[in-house]
Design a protein around this nucleic acid. Structure first.
Lengths: 135, 135
DNA sequence: CTGAACCTTAAAGTATACTATAAGCTGTAT
DNA sequence: ATACAGCTTATAGTATACTTTAAGGTTCAG
């Protein structure tokens, strides 16, 4: 399988595949006589693993860590479990931060709906007031 | 007020203030005889407005939009309200995406706790299985 | 044999929001 | 007088995850 076929099979771009190789997320593939990269199904599986791991919010560098941990002879399960815990904590923090933002925005929007004309827009005025309070 | 005082007053870095100016988030200040930037309290208020707007999750480019809308003679309240609605939708989408991720991660972690040894780590194996399913 | 499709590399560009650096001028305290 | 803080500009670096471009070699159908 050459890089184009692998790209089609996995839905990744050719350049992305080379980029992942440069980050050592994919092993260096063997080359044919013209210097073209030649892949097997393991490479496709690895690429899908990366996709799936990205979809659960892992960064490329976290994915590399995961691959490094799990590609050795053993998976070092305990290490991976604690990795998952850390990540879960991150995600929960992000959610709670966004919920704070959601509340602030929906309060502001509520003000917009209840009062306000072009000369006294509560959205802007409240933001400005908050600034003054913080000062 | 020179740039350093403004920075101290608002908790922003001097470079950040110049950067915001280059993005037209801050008006070009007048200069003293040595070419130094000279600010007044309006500039400080604007800077705090930016900080507060950032804290509710707005990007610098959204903040510029908001400033452009609201700095004219009138605030154009209706426009701002619909801006807030769009942003609220964004934030809610982000939250729900993160909640999906949270569930996936916590399921995976649950598997790690219930079973698994170094040779068969459920976290990795499940990610791999998911890849195969998607293939 | 020519053109299209495919491959190679290295380097630069994109987006966001700064942060740091270099080289040099200004203002003030001692 | 000189050290030091503070100001100026332009440019480059940081982090993440690609995407694009340039310049060129390979493979295959017609």
């Amino acid at each position: 399988m050459k890089i184009g076929q692998l790209a089609r099979k996995t839905g990744a771009e050719r350049q992305t595949i080379r980029y992942y190789e440069s980050l050592r997320l994919l092993d260096e593939p063997r080359r044919n006589s013209s210097g073209y990269r030649v892949y097997d199904d393991d490479a496709a599986r690895r690429l899908m693993f990366i996709k799936r791991a990205k979809s659960i919010g892992l960064t490329l560098s976290e994915i590399r860590t995961l691959i490094e941990i799990s590609v050795g002879k053993a998976n070092r399960c305990e290490e991976i479990r604690s990795f998952a815990e850390d990540k879960l904590r991150d995600v929960r923090e992000k959610i709670s931060h966004l919920q704070t933002i959601e509340k602030a925005l929906s309060d502001l929007k509520g003000l917009c709906e209840s009062s306000g004309d072009d000369l006294h827009c509560p959205f802007i005025e409240t933001l400005l007031d908050d600034c003054i309070k913080e000062n």
